[in-house]
Each structure stands twice: as structure tokens, then as C-alpha cells.
């Protein structure tokens, strides 16, 4: 799985949470909470989806930093075994 594929998948997951937005329109560096108007429930759903898709669990301690698309993809890139 390439990083590009991974990013595309995360975009899909995000749009699934916020259907009002276009996947391509998500800015990789803007805070997702402001950008997509998502809350803790959405982030929980995202975490669940990432677990189901990649089998990874973002530790509680790191979640506060993972608030942009780029940060999430970077983290996945580092932790998902190919």
C-alpha cells in the first residue's frame, strides 16, 4: 500500500464522517476539527475505522497531535505494516 493510496483511503473515511465535504477538497495541513466541523464522536469513529482497516490503534497520548490529514497519514505510514 502506497502512501498515496493510504491518504486517499483516509480522505474517504473522513468524508464518510462529514458527507458534506468533497474528499479532494480536504486541506492536508488544516486542523480537521475546524475544517470539517467534526467532534469527539467523529474522531472516535475515525479511530474505529482506522483500526478496522489497518488494525492499528492510535494511543491516547498521541491523539492530540493527530489533528490534520497529513499528521494522520504520517502516523499511519510509520505504524502500518505493509
Amino acid at each position: 500500500m502506497t502512501r498515496t493510496e493510504m491518504e486517499a483511503r483516509v480522505r474517504e473515511l473522513l468524508v464518510d464522517l462529514a458527507p458534506e465535504f468533497e474528499a479532494d477538497a480536504i486541506d492536508p495541513d488544516e486542523d480537521l476539527r475546524q475544517q470539517l466541523d467534526i467532534d469527539s464522536m467523529d474522531l472516535h469513529q475515525l479511530a474505529t475505522s482506522l483500526f478496522e482497516v489497518y488494525g492499528v490503534d492510535i494511543p491516547e497520548s498521541e491523539r492530540a497531535d493527530l489533528v490534520t490529514l497529513r499528521a494522520i497519514v504520517d502516523w499511519l505510514d510509520a505504524h502500518v505494516s505493509r
Partner: peptide, 8 residues
């Protein structure tokens, strides 16, 4: 695991 976690 994440799917079983509960929000405040």
C-alpha cells in the same frame, strides 16, 4: 480495542 471504547 477501539470499536469497544466509550466516549465520556
Amino acid at each position: 480495542p477501539p470499536p469497544q471504547r466509550v466516549l465520556p
